[in-house]
């Protein structure tokens, strides 16, 4: 039996905007089991990204409890959450977010460095293997500006998987890519996910992408519904 890796209990999130309190999430609860792939869908402004940033520990809920890997992150401070992220969480962003002054290889090894893995050779080997896996062998020394959008996102995939995270969060990973490139990136994402047994949480507008996940959560008016 699979165990719960992310557990969300009745969380709410409100922000103050122009002196008005705006309720974005209004009491959401669900569980995600280890190894599951979950898509979060919803209209623009429904609170998908807010939910994801709470799950990933980038932000704190207004109330409620979030546990990741059995630890309550909603009560952790900034530094503790940063440590948790560096140890167990990977990210893929819509706009890639590679460091412009680092080449492809260095961008991929960066999470290892942040984690404190100081063995440069082993870091480089792991990174090279992953770059090869995403089809960028021989492009290690290229800077982000020398790579196309699809290539940059593939570097970002390699970067996300290099630490073998327990959970991978992907925020509209194909939002900035054309259809064909997007398809390629998606294939890679799911292949690597399957290979590493990572739990995948994906925010997307794309129903086809959502279909490839085992579960889909739909956010609407601050509430969460499991799609059939």
């Amino acid at each position: 039996m699979s165990q719960s890796i992310i557990s969300v209990e009745n969380i709410t999130k409100s922000v103050i905007s122009n002196d008005n309190e705006l309720s974005i999430l209004k009491g959401i609860s669900f569980n995600i089991n280890a190894g599951e792939s979950v898509a979060i869908m919803g209209t623009s402004g429904a609170g998908k990204s807010t939910l994801m940033s709470l799950l990933a520990g980038l932000d704190q809920p207004t109330s409620g409890k979030i546990s990741i890997l059995g630890e309550t992150i909603s009560t952790m401070d900034d530094e503790q959450r940063a440590k948790m992220r560096s140890e167990s969480i990977g990210f893929v962003f819509q706009n890639f977010l590679l460091i412009p002054s680092l080449n492809a290889l260095q961008n991929v090894t960066l999470p290892m460095v942040l984690r404190g893995n100081e063995d440069e050779n082993s870091n480089n080997e792991k990174a090279k293997a992953l770059l090869k896996e995403v089809g960028l062998a021989g492009r290690e020394t290229h800077l982000p500006t020398q790579l196309s959008g699809g290539e940059q996102q593939r570097v970002a995939l390699a970067r996300a998987f290099v630490t073998r995270p327990k959970i991978l969060f992907a925020d509209e990973p194909t939002g900035n890519l054309d259809q064909k490139t997007a398809q390629h990136v998606i294939e890679l994402l799911f292949a690597m996910n399957k290979e590493q047994g990572t739990t995948l949480v994906l925010v997307t507008h794309d129903p086809n992408l959502a279909k490839r996940c085992q579960r889909t959560l739909i956010i609407n008016d601050g509430q969460c519904q499991e799609s059939a």
Binding site: M84, S86, I89, L97, I99, L114
Partner: peptide, 16 residues
Amino acid sequence: SETVSMLKSMGASRAW
């Protein structure tokens, strides 16, 4: 600031 946010999201501590 974007780079710093990204490094933080990947778990970079303030000390780092």
